[in-house]
């Protein structure tokens, strides 16, 4: 059986998230990997899922009874890789040479066969939720109880495949599927409410028959409450996590230039100070 989540106190999650933020920023600088803003907006969600919710044993990552977690917004893979390393799926030293020729670690997650802890090779948006839905349905069909979690971006909700999945999940009353939408209000080239008519996002998911909770996506207590409140709801669950792109570093917050910008060495040092990381 997969081990239960670690259930650290919520306070320790904050320090974990800050440490990971620093590693993500430093890796971006060293490897030239973009999407910092997207990583920083969802890293708190990832930490919550991996340390509080997802039942999985890093030493037995293919256990059929494990919970599944999919980072559907695959361009935040630099955050996921740091999370998986810290959670023990592989040694942190494996991340050395990040982005170099022949490395597994780049801008998007590789396939599950290539790297322990990965459930879906995302990067093209709109695939994680439908694949996760298939995994959630497989739990019911095979009689193996487990839950499936996915983190989507708000921009990703442009993709129609998500809404196809939302309809089927609702019709099939898939209760073991929970998604969190990293609602940072930006996509690559503009405000996510302006590029396409995303708002009102929570109402859209409600209208599709999902159990919806809106939270502060940087508040671990909010996350814990949302999960606890809806644990027994028979519907698929959507957590609309209001977040700030670039969260944690003042000069990156809500500045969409950091979708692609790579930090300089000085900016890495500045960020470390703000995050309370000793040099």
């Amino acid at each position: 059986m997969p081990e239960a989540p670690i259930q650290h106190g919520l306070d320790s999650l904050t320090s974990t998230a800050q440490t990971l933020r620093h590693r993500i920023i430093k890796t971006s600088h060293e490897s030239g990997t973009p999407h910092l803003g997207s990583c920083l907006s969802c890293v708190d969600l990832l930490v919550f899922f991996y340390w509080q919710l997802v039942s999985i044993d890093p030493k037995n990552p293919t256990d059929p009874a494990r919970d599944r977690f999919i980072l559907s917004k695959g361009h935040a893979a630099p955050a996921l890789f740091q999370v998986l390393a810290e959670r023990g799926f592989f040694e942190r030293s494996a991340l050395e040479g990040y982005g170099e020729n022949g490395s597994l670690f780049g801008e998007h997650p590789p396939t599950p066969n290539a790297l322990p802890g990965i459930e879906a090779a995302t990067g093209s948006l709109g695939h994680g939720l439908p694949m996760g839905l298939g995994m959630a349905l497989a739990s019911r069909i095979s009689g193996t109880p487990y839950s499936v979690y996915a983190v989507l971006s708000d921009g990703e909700c442009n993709e129609g495949s998500n809404w196809e999945a939302a309809l089927l999940a609702s019709a099939q009353k898939v209760s073991n599927l929970t998604i969190a939408i990293d609602y940072n209000k930006w996509q690559a080239t503009g405000r996510s409410d302006e590029v396409l008519g995303l708002s009102p996002l929570a109402d859209k998911w409600r209208a599709f028959g999902w159990c919806v909770t809106e939270i502060d996506g940087h508040n671990f207590q909010d996350m814990a409450d949302a999960v606890a409140k809806n644990r027994d709801d028979p519907r698929p669950k959507a957590i609309i996590a209001n977040t700030v792109k670039g969260r944690g570093v003042s000069f990156m917050e809500d500045d969409n230039n950091w979708h692609y910008r790579i930090p300089t060495a000085e900016e890495v040092d500045l960020a470390a100070k703000e995050l309370g990381i000793e040099a």
Binding site: P64, R68, P112, E119, A120, G126, H127, P130, M131, G132, L133, G134, M135, A136, L137, A138, S139, I141, S142, G160, S161, E164, A165, L167, L168, A171
Partner: peptide
């Protein structure tokens, strides 16, 4: 349903789950 993109990904998820 008439939603083949989702259907194909659902099938992939099922296959990855055995």
């Amino acid at each position: 349903g008439i939603a083949e993109a989702n259907m194909m990904s659902v099938a992939a998820g099922m296959a990855l789950s055995g």
